[in-house]
Design a protein around this nucleic acid. Sequence first.
RNA 1: GCACGGUUAACUCAGCGGUAGAGUAGGUGCCUUACACGCACUUUGUCGGGGGUUCGAAUCCCUCACCGUGCACCA
Length: 961
Amino acid sequence: MPVSELSKAYEPNAVEEKWYAEWLAGDFFKADPQSPKPAYSIVIPPPNVTGMLTLGHVLNITIQDILARRARMLGKEVLWLPGTDHAGIATQTVVERTLKKQGAIRHRDDLGREKFLDEVWKWKEEKGGIIIQQLKKLGASCDWSRERFTMDAEYSRCVQQVFVDLYKKGLIYRGKRMVNWCPVSLTALSDEEVIMKPQNGTMYFFKVEIAEMPGTFLTIATTRPETIPGDTAVAVNPRDERYAQLIGKHVVRPLPAEVPREQRLIPIIGDEHVEFEFGTGVLKVTPAHDKADFDIWARARRDGIRRGIEELRQMEPINIMNPDGTMNAFAGEALVGLDRFEARNVAADSLRNQLRVLEKEEPYQNNVGYSERADVPIEPRLSEQWFLKCPQVEKSRNVVASGTMRFYPERWEKVYDHWLEGIQDWCVSRQLWWGHQIPVWRLHNSSDWTTWPFTFARDELPTTTDLQTEIGLEQSLSKVAGHSTFFQTYLLDTDLDIFASTTSELEARELQNLGFERDPDVLDTWFSSWLWPFATMGWPEKTDTLAKFYPTTDLVTGPDIIFFWVARMIMAGFEWMGEMPFRNVYFTGIIRDKQGRKMSKSLGNSPDPLDLIAKFGADALRFGVMRSAPLGADILFDEKNVELGRNFCTKLWNAARFRQMQGGESENEINAALLTSDDKWILLRLDAAIREISAALDEYRFSDAAQKLYAFFWSEFCDWYLEASKAALNSGDAPRKANTLAVIDFLLGHTLRLMHPFLPFITEELWHALDFQRDMPDAQGGRTIMFAPWPQPLGDDFRERYALDDRAERFAISKYELVNQGRTLRRNAGIASKKRVRFVLQPQEPLPAHEQEVLKILLNAEPLEVVGNFDAPKGTPTAPTALGTLFLPLEGLVDFGAERERLQKEMVKIEAELVKVRAKLANPSFVEKVPRAVFDEHRQRESAWAEKLAQLQKLRDGLGA
RNA sequence: GCACGGUUAACUCAGCGGUAGAGUAGGUGCCUUACACGCACUUUGUCGGGGGUUCGAAUCCCUCACCGUGCACCA
């Protein structure tokens, strides 16, 4: 059977390269929508196009590859659709930083939008393929012919169409609101991109004079004294008896100090949201720089309008900061131009030393929102942005809550549900250049972007007639209409749609020529990612691919993007496909270092997966990571795990070499009549392994499956079965030898298939080297193990045909127990394991010659005397076992003390167990209430131990005192 | 503050109502003709604390402590 002789050591890198090329050449990863096979599909979470492979990717990709490969073996038509994400902020930041470092620019404005974007595209062309190549090194079996990028022309078209669609439905609107502003990236962010971090700061207590009551002061507590110039009111709780009577009066705002006093008078207003207990119960209201203050301001203003209080109606937020977080002129002479944190100290200082109104300062810890990307505190900022009222929220909640879509592990369902329950409108516009430019147009110079023509309340919108008269719109539109059918669809639809249009680059240029100007902002990256499951399959066309593979089967991703991505894909799936995008979501853990810290560049604790592949092989890396990645838990990465994976591959390799060195044909049928107890035992263990591994994979318990594979193959197959098989292989009994080889081949053939999803390369290599492909049909393992059928549990007919009964299994187990005992005796007597030594066995029942041979090998006994009755010399190390009594006669070498000690130790253990079980049996309520089977089991246990104890006692007594 | 997860051998974790387990690490001996990336033997546990339910609890309930994560957040 051996086709080519296996080299002494496994060399993963050459083998991996060879087989990956073969798989690609054979088009084995390609998905055929016309296939009659049932579909299995999975879309890759698209990595950042300029990203590099991390261990997080290794985990994520390996899981998907395992799912895809197993699905192929289960006879499914598999689509694993790959691609990359343009990753707006991340990519733009990287390119900008690089250009700055090269000295090419100081700021992106130096280049201008178009040239800067050229640079980003250049960068993308250079780096964009890298991560894809890295995924291939890992063995990812994606259909590369379908690779997509979120800024492909067709994909962009989808994004625009979706925007216009939502706009038409009234779900997208432009509004002036408090947004999370990143002063470094200079863009608005969504709530999800803000992470709260505890921060040590200072609470400043300063007093302000009540204008109407000279000499009377209120004390205000704040952490941000630099925003005092932006205060437009002071709020107290109207139910707070200390302050309620002051509502309607005014205080003198201390800053900016140079402004005349009368211009610094701000009203005291009442608001239920002010807490009595916190600080002094008096809150400064800075509506332009704090979300909560903005709401208080809005309520006060509404109240003013309702009650006709002119002062409140006219109260306007004062913006005292520039977009980059420095203070502007409204902040006053002392602060203007300073960075916000510097300004804080300066403001505090002037309260303290110049104005002398600072009463006290206390160290204070509060939570501050940080920009996820730039890692600086975000600045709440009043700004005009595009918002989306998320569609299909109820359906999206329900599909998960009802269990129609399953999350693994389940507990993420609650997190997901909770988020959807309190979902806020999504700020989708970003002040960046890299991304999908918002498909909204206006007439050039017709007005200012920030105010025209969109306001959020529908009734405030200008009418079509207004617009037509105001800006001559009709005239321009008629010009547009003649140019493109595409515009007609979206531009001339209704009076409101005139501003939103899907446009190709060419069309955009035409619009520009006609005097239209496009919104310069781009869309949040996730506004394109949320379409990934169907936009990659040809939507909005009704493609074969969509028909066959949508909804997808599994999604594998990290829980950190459950809101960013998973939830939104579900909403999008319902909105445009009318169906959920995937049936199951598997959330991986986060990879940490072995001390439990997150992987990070600055800590230098994040190994390069490619180095690991070069050192240990891709299979080793995959196996090592999967074996230590339990469902739902974080993974503490340790290179030791990869080493273990490598060792496992080597073990597999050597077992295959062992098989190959025996020669002989692999086509032999197993002959039931010649099966030994070891054969039967290992077949039953294989059956159990198939069941357990299949069940584990069905439930996404990958580490359980990997551990079972490891334990089964190493301990059961190699350590016990292959060792025992040497008795037959060395026996010179040709039929027996052939039969043993048939069993070994059966085991290897099944084991390789069970391993293949985890270890694709080495299993493919051995599949061919051991010639397993020979008798398989082309489509089922003849060309590649990838399509070999997934092993099924051995059926009843199989068990019957090969007489795989409990009796043989129990005998084998007893035999291995006996071997363990014998090895312990040998070890205890200080005999080296390689030294052949005389054992004597006094069996319970006659032992077949073959079994004697097996025992001889496993015990490394020479000779093994099997006798009816052995009169052991006093003190001979002796082990009573189920198969009989085993002696290790040591002529003249007996160490009575050591042997007594060994027996004593064993007896102590057994006595302890006996005490426990007897206490239970002596308990009347135990006897009364316990189920019969449990009771019997306890009785059996008791008598077994008692017997064993008696035997040991006898042995010990035989040694004398 | 609310919610979720965790606390089991030196480390990482499994077990989730009926005799405490695995891998790694440690110890000892072996380069035994598939494999030293190996083989054999072997040590180690108040299963976080307290209370309850039960004949019986690592396992179920309550409570406390600590660790982690998510959400909310008050100046």
